[in-house]
Design a protein around this nucleic acid. Structure first.
Lengths: 157, 157
DNA sequence: GGGCTGGTACTCGGATAAGTTGTGTCCGAGTGCTTCTGG
DNA sequence: CCAGAAGCACTCGGACACAACTTATCCGAGTACCAGCCC
């Protein structure tokens, strides 16, 4: 099981955007993180479709968060980029083969799928209680102020 | 994000094996679930390598659980087939690009990776508290007894 | 000098190719049962 | 009738193709700024 690598980029971008007042171009975000500019653009498009960021075209265009960072959860970003579908998909194995359980007898969900669903909900809940704002606060608290300032001036340059 | 489909097969097989006293051949398990026999054999090999099942060769050979079903967790099966690695891999983006944080300053883990790790632990914990025995008990409780008997005789036939 | 218009350079957006991982398949090595033969 | 040994059928195990998805890239459409021109 492996999550799309773009999730990490998207989260970092959202953290950066949380402290931005003017639109930031995708190319700038890519250079800042030293990743493929075109591929990161794709991830930003996904965030845009999900309504998490707003893109402004034109010469001074770029991306900006649509909501305060404290109202965007990590789960929002993960689901926007990686998709909302759970990792486990029940194929109703019990309804196949010579000993198949008839569908009308399957009123209760498959226990295996139920366990997986519970775990998936726990996972998502863990991601839902953390906001981009909280992440940004942690970054601010643990990173030397000098570095933060340098990054800020570099972004607006 | 998508989990290997073989996980579902492996779990179903373990549930079936939990109520087996004699070795069950891989081909029989495949026919019972109506899945690719050769591919399911691959998953069973993974379970065998992980030490969850024991294979006995020869004419009356097959697979059997090595431990009581109540001592095998769902997580054991998932990690045996899908791998123990977490879905999210931190690539230390903060240490790249023009604003890279120097490694000696990275004494605290990346907050993003920390959140993902917490969620991953919650997910695994949910799978750890459920055993194959519990799953089998649920199946026994929710499936009509007649079907269970038919399946049992079909297996030993 | 002010307003308007055309040009331009920049932006995002979707459609288009390689690499990697999951999916599915095949054949060979090994083991235990069965059967045949000899005593 | 019993013991031994060869044959055989079945099993698992690892090595080999195919497909789907992630990753990465390119080019086109659209927009806002800027310069030049007309009033």
């Amino acid at each position: 099981m492996k999550m799309t690598g773009g999730v990490e980029w998207g989260l970092h971008c959202c953290v950066v955007l949380s402290s931005a007042t003017e639109p930031v171009a995708a190319a700038k975000l890519a250079e800042l993180h030293d990743v493929s500019a075109t591929y990161l653009a794709k991830q930003l498009q996904l965030l845009s479709r999900a309504g998490l960021v707003r893109s402004t075209p034109g010469q001074l265009g770029g991306y900006l968060l649509t909501r305060p960072a404290t109202e965007i959860t990590v789960l929002d970003v993960v689901e926007a980029i990686d998709g909302p579908q759970p990792a486990f998909r029940c194929t109703e194995v019990r309804q196949r083969g010579p000993m198949a359980v008839p569908p009308e007898r399957c009123d209760t969900p498959c226990p295996i799928a139920a366990v997986m669903d519970t775990a998936d909900r726990a996972w998502r809940e863990s991601l839902r209680v953390v906001t981009i704002g909280a992440l940004a606060a942690t970054v601010t608290a643990t990173t030397p102020g000098e570095l933060l300032d340098r990054a800020r001036v570099w972004l607006s340059a």
